[in-house]
Design a protein around this nucleic acid. Sequence first.
RNA 1: GCGCCCAUCGUCUAGCGGUCAGGACAUCGCCCUCUCACGGCGAAAACACGGGUUCGAUUCCCGUUGGGCGUACCA
Length: 489
Amino acid sequence: MSTSDTNAPVRVRIAPSPTGEPHVGTAYIALFNYLFARKHNGTFILRIEDTDATRSTPEFETKVLDALKWCGLEWSEGPDIGGPYGPYRQSDRKDMYQPYAQELLDKGHAFRCFCTPERLEQMREAQRASGKPPKYDGLCLHLKAEEVTSKMAAGESSVIRMKIPTEGSCDFTDGVYGDVSIPWDSVDMQVLIKGDGMPTYHMANVIDDHLMKITHVARGEEWLASVPKHILLYRYFGWDQPTFMHLSLMRNADKSKLSKRKNPTSISYYSALGYVPEALMNFLGLFFMQIAEGEELMTMAELAEKFDPENLSKSGAIFDIQKLDWLNGRWLREKFSEEEFTARVLTWAMENDRLKEGLRLSQSRITKLGELPDLAGFLLKSDLGLEPAAFAKVKSSPEEILEILNTVQPDLEKIFEWNVESIEAELRAIAERMDKKLKVVLAPLFVAVSGSSRSLPLFDSMAILGRSVVRQRLKVAAKVVASMAGSGK
RNA sequence: GCGCCCAUCGUCUAGCGGUCAGGACAUCGCCCUCUCACGGCGAAAACACGGGUUCGAUUCCCGUUGGGCGUACCA
C-alpha cells in the first residue's frame, strides 16, 4: 500500500470536535502536531469536526479556538482564518461528502442500510447475550437495487455503510506503535453517512485529510482500532494514505483515560487556577521528548528543538499535577521579570471578567474596600482549603448535605450552555425534584463554591468560576462532607 | 466476551545482553534563613511473574498476570 510522498511538504492537523469544554487532551495532541509541523517546516492546520450535529455548538467551537490560542498553538489554516483548502468546518463541507459516498455506492464498496436504531440495538443485545461480539449482521447488505429505490421512494430513512473484507487482516505500520495487524472480521461495517446526511468521523476524516493534503495523522491512541476502516477507505478511493501516528493517552491516577469525572480536564480549569500556558505546554511537551538528564524547563522554541517523534513512549502517562505545579512555579519565578509577572497577574485576574464581575457583585455588600479579599477572594483562589467547620452555619445534617451535593453534581453536567440563567433554572428544578426549599439546596452550595455561607450571589459566582472549577469544588466539598457524615457533625 | 495495544522507583522516564539500574517530580532529613517559600546537599524508593535463548538477561522470544483502548447513525 502506498503512503504519501515523503517529499511532500508536511501538513498536519488538529481536529477537535466542539462538543464540550476544551480538553487538555486536545491541547496535548495539538501540541504534538504543532511541534511536528515546526520540526519539519510544515503546516499546522485546525479543522473543526462537528459532524455530530446534536452535540456540537458554536459556543464550544469558540471556546476550543480560544483555548488553543491561549496555549500558544497557532494554526496557519483554520475556520477563523481560512486557507486554500477550506472550508475548515465539517458542517460547512456537508455537501462535499455526498459525491464520495455515491462513488463508493457505485463501485459496490458501500451499501444503503435501512435498519432502525432500535433493531440494531436489539441485534447487538442478542449478540452480546450469546457471547458474540456486537457487529452489524449484514441484513441490508444484499438488498436488490429495486428494493433500495422503493424503500427510498417510500421515504424510509437510511444510512450508508462501508463493506469490509471477510478474511485476512489489515496490516499497517504506525509511526508510534510500529507494525500492527488487525483482523478484518473484528472490523464492523461502519456507517459512513448518517441518517441526517452528515458523514461520520471516519468518512469525513479520510476525505478531508485527503483533500487538505494531510501527510501525517497524529491523534490519540483511541483511534488505533479504527485505522483499518480508514485505510480501507483510502484504498476504495484509490488515494495515498497518510502516515498514522497514535499517541498514548494521558491517564487519570487510576490509569484510565483522562476524564473529567476523575480529574479536571478543561483547559479553562487550568487557566482559571493560574497555570500559565507556557508551563502547561512545557509539561505536555515533556511527553514528546526523552530527557535522560538535564533541564526540563523549556520554552516552546526549546520544545520544538528537542522534539523527538521517533521514540515516543507507548504506555499512557498519568497526568501528574504535582509536576505541572513544579514547572508552573519555576516559570513564575524564573522565566518572568517582575514586570512580566505583574502583567500576568493582572491579565489573569481579569480573565473572563472574573475580577470585574466580582467587584460589581461586591459593591453593595461591603463597607470598606478591605473586605473585598474575604468576600470575593474565592473567585480567584485555586484552592478553597475547605474544612468541615465551613459548613457550621448550614442547617442540614451532613447526610442531607451530601445528598444535595451528590444530586446537584450530575445534574449540573446536563446544562448545555453555562450561564447565570441556565444555572438558576437547573438548581430550581433540582430543589423542586428533591422536594426541598431552594434555600436548603443552595446553602451547602454557597459553602462548596465560595468556602463560606456569607458570599456573593451563588448563580453569578458559579457562572464566573466556570463549570470546570465548580465541578471540582463540588467534588472536593462532597469529600469533606463525607468525612463529616461518618463522624457526626 | 472478542480485537488491538502496553508493562523500570508512588509518578514521568533513561537504558537498546555485562551498569553500584541513571535523572526529574513528589516524600523524608540536613543546610541557608526574621517566618514561609526559593535555593543547596543528602536519604529512602523500581526492572510484575514463569519459562526459554545466551557464558550472561531489565534488555531478545514465548506464556501468565495486570492495565489501557476499541467494540455507536460520538468523536
